[in-house]
Simulated scan of single mutants.
Amino acid sequence: MLSAIFGISHARRARRPVRLAGPAGSGAGALRPTHPGEIMPDVSVCSSWESSEGLRTQTGDTDFQNLWGAGCAGCRMSWFQKLFGYNHGVVIGMLHVPALPGTPCHNMTLQAIIKKVCSEARGYVQAGITGLMLENMHDVPYIQPDDIGPEITTSMTAVSCAVRQEYPNIPIGVQVLSAANKQALAVALAAGLDFIRAEGFVFSHIGDEGLQNACAGELLRYRRQIGADHIKVLTDIKKKHSSHAITSDVSISETAKSAEFFLSDGLIVTGTSTGVPASPQDIQEVREVVNLPVVIGSGVTVDNLHESRAMLHANGCIVGSHFKHGGHWQNDVDLRRVKHFMDEAKTLQT
């Protein structure tokens, strides 16, 4: 089965949305703010951290395992439901932004890109999607984060702002390829988004862009420095399109535990490439060792939505390829496929 996610932007964090009865995101009434003036607690820093006396070992060190289980575990799971309004059946629809200025495949004005992305977002919302995520997937070939120019960050910010303006209450996230996690945080902060998808959070791997090293410490310090602690960081582990030979002695469950220890807000498990289903065994192994939301990041289709054993252990899914004409990520969104999928997914939403 699937499970729930996300909230609203920093500017609106004092009035978090709550889910009305019935299908999510199907109209203006799908989300509504809490009572005017009501302040929802910010769970980005759990009170257990501030009252961790009694969770010390005999050597005086903090017993992090018990700290997670005693207090933070609940907070680190609850943000997921508070943001999306469901425990099960959450679906994040991918908005694959057309190639941006300066990239080899760029062939549209920024205004045309914004119009296209907003149109696809509109179709997703009408079909009842639970959340959205923007990604510059058409910017092939991808480059290392230090080589990404300001034109990419500013363009993604402009597109994200347009989508957020049109849909102020639906959960929205962003990913900037490749592994441009700081840039994604900056975009999310400027556009009032709710989460990012981060690559290379813990352990190194070899992607088709080259070596990518762990970024957790640097990324979360940057998040604190820019005042973006309210923006959640969902992190890929043993990510697709990558070789993990250099960490072949580290299992996916150990990787998951390390990501949790390094303060990930949620984990994403994928297959070997875009559109390839994640291993049900991987999902189960990760679910059993962490107290974090676990999201399936590839290969979910209407055919395996109910049948896959992975769905019993995951908390949500990100769907891109299956929503496109012919099931290929490069094509336009096929709203009939989205509607069919969401009609099935809504039966899992609780």
Rank of each mutant, 00 (worst) to 15 (best):
M1I: 05
I5H: 06
I8Y: 07
S9K: 05
R13H: 09
R16Y: 03
R16D: 00
R19V: 10
R19G: 05
L20E: 09
G22L: 01
P23N: 02
G25E: 06
S26T: 15
G27H: 14
G29A: 10
L31G: 08
R32H: 04
P41G: 04
D42V: 07
D42F: 04
C46V: 05
W49P: 00
W49A: 10
D61H: 14
T62A: 11
Q65E: 14
Q65H: 15
N66P: 00
W68N: 11
G74M: 03
G74K: 05
G74H: 07
C75H: 14
R76S: 12
S78A: 14
W79Y: 14
F80V: 00
Q81I: 04
Q81L: 01
F84M: 02
H88V: 01
V91I: 15
I92H: 05
L95Q: 11
P98F: 02
A99Q: 11
A99Y: 10
T103D: 02
T103V: 02
H106W: 13
N107T: 11
M108S: 12
T109N: 05
Q111H: 10
Q111A: 14
I113W: 14
K115M: 04
K115H: 12
K115L: 06
G123W: 06
Y124P: 08
L132N: 13
M137W: 15
I152H: 05
T153M: 06
A162H: 09
V163A: 03
Q165E: 13
Q165Y: 09
E166Y: 04
Y167M: 09
I170P: 12
P171G: 11
V174M: 02
V176C: 15
S178A: 08
A180S: 09
A180L: 00
A180C: 13
N181F: 13
Q183W: 03
Q183N: 12
A184N: 04
A186S: 13
A188R: 01
L189F: 12
F195R: 03
I196K: 01
R197T: 00
G200Q: 06
V202T: 15
S204A: 15
E209F: 15
L211T: 13
L211I: 15
Q212D: 01
C215A: 07
A216F: 12
G217R: 11
E218I: 14
L219I: 14
R221L: 11
Q225V: 01
A228W: 13
A228T: 11
D229E: 15
I231T: 06
T235K: 00
K238G: 00
D249G: 05
V250N: 03
S253N: 13
T255G: 06
S258N: 10
A259W: 01
S264W: 01
S264R: 05
D265G: 13
G266K: 04
L267G: 12
V269F: 04
T272F: 09
T272N: 08
T274K: 08
V276P: 04
P277M: 02
P280G: 08
V286N: 02
V289N: 10
N291T: 10
V295P: 00
V295A: 01
N304S: 11
H306N: 13
M311Y: 05
L312W: 09
H313M: 08
G316R: 07
G316E: 06
I318Q: 06
G320D: 04
S321D: 10
S321C: 12
F323L: 11
H325V: 15
G326W: 08
V333G: 07
V338M: 08
F341M: 07
A345T: 10
